[in-house]
């Protein structure tokens, strides 16, 4: 985070997370950067999965970590840093999803000579792995997953993404979303049902 070329080598190396946080709170940009790098890959993946758009994911990344930077002094170690960070990230994503939903209902359906069509009905980019058979399958698969995701509530999506792709425990997910483990369980249950009916013939 610094622009100077001559950093004292290793001054933040070997710090554990709590030390990094304290250093970042004292204004150490290097420590802040190291803290960011422990989590930012997963944050970006989560945002990418939830919003399905690189530009939206980019926005979430910037906004989330800038908020962390601005508010690091209000972090009091009364929950894990991961939980604190993910509260910020999921709140931003929820806002984004809500806005998207509004846009969708406003402008998504267009009239065509063949009747109304959903113009956001596009399939996310496919993997470029060169195997046409697989690519076709994966394209179809992604289309179905997208469809199932758009049929979920924002909370169901959050829980599903955090459990399935981030590997978080339901209890931790409840903490992040400000709800109980039981409620998180129910969300995961419903999300899985929806995925299953969307992907019926793939499994």
């Amino acid at each position: 985070m610094h622009t100077g070329s001559s950093r004292i080598a290793g001054s933040t190396l070997g710090m554990d997370e709590a030390e990094l946080i304290r250093a970042a709170q004292a204004g150490d940009h290097d420590a802040f950067e190291r803290l960011v790098r422990q989590y930012d890959q997963n944050v970006l993946r989560l945002a990418m999965n939830l919003l399905r758009s690189p530009e939206d994911a980019y926005d979430i990344y910037q906004e989330a970590f800038l908020r962390v930077f601005r508010n690091i002094n209000s972090f009091r170690f009364d929950c894990s840093f991961h939980t604190w960070l993910y509260r910020i990230v999921t709140n931003l994503c929820l806002d984004h999803l809500r806005k998207k939903k509004v846009r969708r209902t406003e402008s998504a359906v267009v009239e065509t000579p063949d009747g109304p069509m959903d113009r956001l009905d596009s399939v996310p980019e496919m993997r470029a792995d060169g195997d046409p058979q697989r690519t076709l399958l994966s394209r179809e698969l992604r289309g179905r997953i997208s469809e199932a995701l758009s049929g979920m509530t924002a909370r169901e999506r959050m829980v599903f993404e955090m459990r399935h792709y981030q590997g978080m425990r339901l209890r931790a997910i409840g903490d992040v979303l400000g709800t109980t483990e039981e409620a998180a369980k129910n969300c995961l249950f419903r999300a899985t049902q929806k995925m299953r009916s969307a992907l019926g013939d793939f499994v």
Binding site: L44, Y58, E125, S138
Partner: peptide, 19 residues
């Protein structure tokens, strides 16, 4: 397993640009 294959991919270079 199928869902794991269907994870949307983070485009190359996006993480670096974000950082």
């Amino acid at each position: 397993e199928v869902l794991s294959q269907g994870e949307s991919e983070v485009p190359a270079g996006l993480l670096a640009r974000c950082r």
